[in-house]
Design a binder for these strands. Sequence first.
DNA 1: ACCTGAACACCGTTCAAGT
DNA 2: ACCTGAACACCGTTCAAGT
Lengths: 249, 249
Amino acid sequence: MAASTARGTAAKTARPRRKRDSLSREIIVAAAEAVADRDGLEGLTFQAIGAELDAHPTSVYRHFRDKDELLLELVDTLRARSYGGTLVPSDDWRVDLRLAAKVVHEHYLRYPRFAFQMAARTTRRPVEFSNVEFLLQALVRAGLDDDSVGLYQRAFGNFVRGSASIEAAMLALPEETRRADELAWEVEYRQLDPESFPTVAAHPDALRSLGDPEIFDFSIELLITAIEVRAAELADRRSAPQPASSEES
Amino acid sequence: MAASTARGTAAKTARPRRKRDSLSREIIVAAAEAVADRDGLEGLTFQAIGAELDAHPTSVYRHFRDKDELLLELVDTLRARSYGGTLVPSDDWRVDLRLAAKVVHEHYLRYPRFAFQMAARTTRRPVEFSNVEFLLQALVRAGLDDDSVGLYQRAFGNFVRGSASIEAAMLALPEETRRADELAWEVEYRQLDPESFPTVAAHPDALRSLGDPEIFDFSIELLITAIEVRAAELADRRSAPQPASSEES
DNA sequence: ACCTGAACACCGTTCAAGT
DNA sequence: ACCTGAACACCGTTCAAGT
């Protein structure tokens, strides 16, 4: 309220002109980051950035083609802030996968309204490069073969980003809406007709909300289990090549 | 172009009044579905719904509290259209998990712009109830224990919805933006400095785009593998209770 | 009671005009 | 060349006025 009134007033009184060359991509991204940190990051509009810069909202267009370009730049900056440089390989690929999952998960929960944008885009920028290198390396050390390691990297990555962004999206819902969605798993689902939904009725305490905090780590361990099994199969196949068998040959 | 001009003209000429009680929640949802089917479903605005109904855009407010309420109603209707009644249990839980994953995946690709909304919300409506029952039942038959079956159901569900909505989100990007994001995995990532990113450089053909069509099925098989392993462990533990061991007792 | 029209407070984006 | 102001074509939502 107060803020919007102030902004409205500022827009009406003559704004002191900003000095020539006083704006730059860096300065604008910094302002966008400040807005994102303060306003939960859904309030990232040109108006808000303009107010933060004490500049006209459209001045950003001199430095960025459109909002998407600003967004990608900001996404990588935020990643660098959250976990830039923290992905240092250990001697255990499992520890590395857990670490990669953890930093992304925490980052998304920090910027819940931005999470899905970050999950679904390729920024092709430094922090993303490092992520890919780190994951690929861990999966190679797990014992997967060179041809399919990319499939595993993408499966693991989409899993992490997809699950984390769903959890984040719940956090970003309006309080009332979120409450209602969460309560559904404790109330509505316990009252389902046992005739039509016998398995649900037989497991009243088993159901979890979409945003249940235990789910993410549990899911990561599931994937690690699967990777262990596949790697072990490969190792068996390598060390003990198939004996003559009518089925295999 | 033509459509928007026509709409503008229609708005200016006196609109013939709709008959009293000629609107209802059902009729409005049907119009919303038509708009969603035709306009890729991002164009789902009150204006478009109004045009579809030959009614004033704000007339929807008489029947729905706000856009979110209309959205949830529409989401379940679309689910029913896409795969209502198709989730019939087979005698193989693996087949059932693949089926559940497949119908959701196809549904999201059909409505890419809506996918994440569908992934992150609990509608507590009939089609969702059936999904949960179907998944839970398959997981029980897989041999998981009653206490943790809900964790697996949520992990599997979030995995399916998260991965599918990431793939859908790529499809929903503006053509040019999507091209650029996809090309990154074929161009930029092949040119990374081998000193800084040795594993990426050593696997130039391994990398996959976020929306690679092979990823989803591959991921589902990974999860099925993990569930098989966990279920087998449980079976072992049941049939052969631990021999005396200082660690376990 | 139900539908309409006008208005409000927002968006992103374009473009001519100031400096 | 860089910043501003006004304008455009949109949004969702509110509310008084028509029927």
